[in-house]
């Protein structure tokens, strides 16, 4: 693959990740914030994959997106769902 295309893809993935992170900060409903955080870690896993580190990508995929989401959801269930001002 050409060098420039790879750089374009990496840049766009970083921008997507940034967009998801901003969403995770802005949303007031905590469940939506958790979903946005899962999106961010999905993008992070692809980014690790681009940087030739498949083992880190595998760990990020399993821990970041599946396990963290489940734990956050359980935590929201024990507390409140909507953040207050």
């Amino acid at each position: 693959m050409e060098e420039s295309l790879e750089q374009i893809l990496e840049l766009s993935l970083t921008l997507l990740m940034l967009g998801g992170a901003v969403c995770a900060c802005v949303f007031k409903d905590l469940l939506n914030a958790v979903i946005a955080a899962a999106f961010v870690s999905l993008m992070a896993a692809i980014l690790f994959y681009f940087l030739q580190a498949p083992d880190v990508a595998m760990a990020e995929a399993s821990i970041g997106a599946a396990l963290t989401t489940a734990i956050f959801v359980i935590a929201i269930k024990k507390t409140k769902r909507v953040e207050e001002e």
């Binding site: 994959y49 498949p54 989401t69």
Partner: peptide, 29 residues
């Protein structure tokens, strides 16, 4: 790289846990 397929395999198996957790929460919440 052949070894990169393993990451996709782990993805396909584990991602389903997150979705089911969110769905379970929404059902009772």
């Amino acid at each position: 790289r052949y070894i990169y397929l393993d990451v996709a395999l782990v993805y396909a198996v584990l991602m389903f846990i997150g979705s089911v957790a969110i769905a379970r929460f929404l059902e009772k919440g």
